[in-house]
Nucleic acid binder design. Structure first.
Length: 465
RNA sequence: GGCUGAGUGGCAGAGUGGUUAUGCAGCGGCCUGCAAAGCCGUCUACCUCGGUUCGACUCCGGGCUCAGCCUCCA
């Protein structure tokens, strides 16, 4: 009767039935941000996808152990020998210590996380807090013969693994033909750093002792080490942005195969990109849109969450202010409808309309088809069900949507000047002086507020733009 | 240059070999002092050229365009 959850697995390139590897607990690891700068709304789309995944798993009665890492060291500006650490670069740019930079952008990221109503992970883990684990993993990988030394670090020898790159269907011959990778001392273009030495004469702010010399861990080993520490050598789902498929996740799998003999996760899932101005929004490109920029324009964070729900996580989405407007309007309408239905009954779960919940569940079970799930929500809004049932149903579904649909439309702070104009207009209307009332409405609108008249009086609301 | 994937109405975005996506916007009506909101109704689509088929937006091939990866990136 109940639709079984099916999810797309990038590793097998197909949608298949999901079941936890052990018991009813789902172990979920998500690659988190590199905290050298603010997150942009494209980054946030991926975390929203992961939050919806987590909420869906919980909706399907699984317990979820959700782990998110914070990359605060080792993420280089390029994989070549000349690559610089992004955090250290950010520190120099802003005249602060690397540690301050990491702490500041971590806080900013987590603030965005909460504003988008994402559920708190069980574990936030920082790479710099897990140096010992990473060193231990590198030593074991080396002991097993999958690593070699160069003048600037310890590298993973991808030639030792026949399965290397399977996740991305990487073809070694094709990569050679591309020939755009600086190989340097690496034996193969796909080999990657496990440990990098601090360069002679360079005083790094983040560096540690290791059996191979003073330096810092490579980017890929941190995720493997932390994921295994908190979730085990083989867990249920590993997520990230689709850009991680060809390099980062292939390398995590390689490390895990060498170190543990597992592919690390049963399902590999990837969020797709947000396109902006017909081009990808790039964090490293420097020009990007933050959640704050949306707030400054008068949008609430959950309008962006709604917008993301209107597209499937596995297709690129085009961002525009026009589409955000549409999402904001739809969310407002949804909340207004919910408010008009009054209170739900005593038990949300018991009063919810079973057929609607089943429809919604079926769409989510089909690899998280949020666009169709939203269509079910709108069918509910237009249905002939009793208001208390509609309300209970919508609140039930909001466990996945996370749109706070039960929330009353926010009370806007009304500037005194605007409030005074509104009072004058009310007086003019009472006197049936329509010309004066219309003139006052124009003045109010010039202050950025709209006036809605109703039999109970007039209300003000802020206009966007 | 190599490899992936995609091209749906004004915008965003699902889906399907023959049947309404959905939302926003627009248009018409009700309501309103006039509006707005709300409610009711409604128009607009499947890149292009061929092929397969009784029938293709849906399958196959060419072309064009876009995005991604191959280089740090959600």
């Amino acid at each position: 009767m109940t639709a079984a959850l099916r999810l797309y697995d990038t590793y097998q390139r197909k949608i298949r039935a999901f079941a936890p590897l052990a018991g009813d607990e789902v172990r979920l690891y998500a690659c988190g941000p590199t905290v050298y700068d603010y997150a942009h709304i494209g980054n946030l789309r991926t975390y929203l996808f992961e939050d919806v995944l987590r909420r869906t798993l919980e909706f399907f009665d699984y317990r979820v152990r959700h782990v998110v890492n914070i990359t605060d060291v080792g993420h280089l500006t390029s994989d070549a020998d000349s690559g610089e650490d992004k955090i250290e670069q950010g520190a120099r740019r802003e005249g602060q210590s690397a540690w301050d930079i990491a702490a500041r952008y971590t806080r900013a990221f987590q603030a965005d996380w909460r504003r988008l109503n994402m559920r708190e992970p069980a574990v936030w883990c920082r790479a710099s807090d897990h140096i010992a684990e990473q060193i231990a993993d590198i030593a074991e990988i080396q002991r097993r013969g999958y690593a070699y030394l160069t003048s600037d670090g310890v590298y993973f020898d991808t030639a030792k693994l026949k399965t290397y790159g399977h996740l991305a269907r990487i073809d070694a011959a094709g990569l050679a033909a591309g020939a755009r990778v600086e190989v340097g001392e690496k034996r193969r273009a796909t080999d990657f750093a496990l440990w990098k030495f601090s360069r002679p004469g360079e005083q790094r702010q983040m560096e540690w002792d290791s059996p191979w010399g003073v330096g810092f861990p490579g980017w890929h080993i941190e995720c493997s080490a932390m994921a295994v520490k908190y979730l085990g050598a083989e867990f249920d789902i590993h997520c990230g942005g689709k850009d991680h498929i060809p390099v980062h996740h292939c390398n995590e799998i390689a490390q895990s195969e060498a170190r543990h003999g597992t592919t690390l996760a049963n399902f590999w899932m990837h969020g797709y990109f947000l396109q902006f101005d017909r081009a990808r929004m790039s964090k490293s490109g420097g020009d990007f849109l933050r959640l704050d920029a949306l707030l400054e324009r008068g949008y609430e964070p959950l309008a962006y969450r709604y917008l993301c729900l209107t597209a499937h996580y596995r297709s690129d989405m085009k961002f525009s202010w026009e589409s955000l407007d549409g999402a904001a309007a739809a969310l407002c309408r949804l909340r207004a409808a919910a408010q008009a239905w009054g209170e739900a009954g005593e038990s949300v779960a018991a009063d919810a309309d079973a057929a609607t919940v089943a429809d919604f569940r079926r769409e989510m079970a089909r690899d998280l088809n949020t666009p169709r799930a939203l269509a079910v929500v709108w069918a509910l809004v237009k249905s002939e069900l009793p208001p208390t049932v509609k309300k209970a149903t919508l609140l039930e579904l909001d466990a996945i949507l996370g749109l706070e649909v039960g929330r009353a439309p926010a009370e806007e702070a009304i500037p005194a000047g605007v409030a005074a104009l509104a009072e004058q207009r009310a007086a003019a209307r009472a006197a049936r002086d329509w010309a004066a009332a219309d003139r006052l409405r124009g003045e109010i609108e010039a202050h950025g507020f709209a006036v809605d008249d109703s039999p109970d009086g007039s209300t003000l609301r802020r206009q966007r733009g």
